[in-house]
């Protein structure tokens, strides 16, 4: 699929960061506003898919030299680890905790262990989507 599409490529370069930033925003907003791990992850994945469409697999592999299977694995580890972490505090599996804290720059922020779990979801979704797309793309 060698298409020399300058307009798409240029637009992609600009839009890509906007989409990724937006997806990160969606991810962190998830606890209060629409968003969360699934949507954030999908949005990030979609951004990378756009990159794939505009350029080709090799270029993307150079820009993002991750093994996305490992991203999936790390995500699962996060999710299970958060769940198992509760066991250390003598609480049932997957019990979450939260607290309010004052962080520099951010001010009063409420911190959740649920975010760690959501990071797991986020990473799994990215990993899975891109594993699928990359594998199919590479297969020729």
């Amino acid at each position: 699929m060698k298409i020399n599409d300058v307009i798409l490529q240029t637009a992609t370069k600009l839009v890509l960061f906007v989409i990724i930033l937006f997806s990160i925003h969606l991810f962190f907003a998830g606890h209060y506003y629409p968003g969360g791990g699934f949507i954030g992850g999908l949005m990030t994945a979609a951004a990378i898919v756009l990159l794939l469409l505009a350029f080709d697999l090799k270029t993307v592999a150079k820009i993002l030299p991750f093994d996305f299977k490992k991203v999936t694995a790390i995500g699962l580890l996060f999710a299970v680890g958060t769940g198992a972490g509760a066991l250390l505090f003598d609480a049932p599996f997957l019990t979450h905790a939260f607290t309010d804290a004052y962080l520099p720059l951010l001010g009063k922020t409420s911190l959740h262990t649920a975010v760690l779990f959501d990071i797991g979801v986020y990473l799994v979704v990215i990993g899975v989507t891109l594993t699928i797309i990359q594998t199919i793309g590479e297969s020729e």
Binding site: F38, I132, I136
Partner: peptide, 12 residues
């Protein structure tokens, strides 16, 4: 999300 996974599996 699950149906996305299943559909892509089917496709492949």
């Amino acid at each position: 999300v699950i149906s996305f996974g299943v559909t892509s599996f089917f496709l492949v």
